[in-house]
Amino acid sequence: MTIQDTDIPRRRAFLSEGLRRYLAAFRTPRGLIGGGLLAIMCLAALLAPVVFPGAVDAQSRDSFLGPSLTHPFGTDELGRDIFIRCIYALRISISLVIVAVPIAMVIGTLMGLAGAISPALGDAFQRLFDIILGFPSLILGICIVVAIGPGWIALAVTIAIFSLPQFGRLARGALLTEEGREYVLAARVLGVGKRKIMTRHILPNAMDPILVQASLAMIGGIFAEAALSIVGLGIQPPTPSLGTLLNVGIRYVYVQPMYTAGPIILLLLLALAFNLISDALNAAVMKTRND
């Protein structure tokens, strides 16, 4: 009898096992860089008011100064430091996606799994997802802004609603494949309750793609804020957000290119960080899957 050598796992609760797998993603080079980058940016945004008290709105006569050591990104039309305003702007972007995406993830996943309880409900939610996805993303945002009025809340709702179907469809897909799996049938025949089948067999398998999607949805959310704020339908000036900075910056692009370039650099850094994290998560998930 040949049994392949694999490390013998200790007995442990199932959830912690899943968590350990996901955390392992952050020990890979990509996960480490992505996570580190994100941590630095979060920290900077959090500590900005402490480190530069009042500096965000401090005006001076030195408008449109070029980049220097004191003003890494130069100054804007009112002589404010663009770098500090960009760091402040991170607060909006990060807070938006940290709130909106997890909410969408939970609700979307639940809606996707609703088919397990009532097939009709599951179908109805899928129809809803089709409709949301049928709307070009920004048009959807515009409708929400009109309905709620521009601001943080409208942006959060837009991001959440637009992310909803992505999670819902992944969860639904996982539900349908898992429900047909023989080990799920086996559990049913053994008389294992619906809830236990869900938490033990279906949810863990659904979580993999959903978590990867969550970090991608965060990128989408950050860019959505920028898009709506650029056209003036998102965050309203003078509150600095990456989008509002760009909204004003583009007007002065000839005299102060850093006004546009600065927010873009931060946008891309955020996207890079989340991208690396999603890559690392994906790799970790695939690895356990193929073993």
């Binding site: 799996r181 053994l190 033990r200 067999h201």
Partner: peptide, 22 residues
């Protein structure tokens, strides 16, 4: 459930890969 049990066809699909035999 108490009286009738089932053995499946596909030995690869009928055991959840994420659970130990125990």
């Amino acid at each position: 459930r108490d009286q009738v049990q089932y053995v499946f066809q596909d030995p690869y699909a009928s055991l959840n890969p994420r659970l130990t035999i125990r």
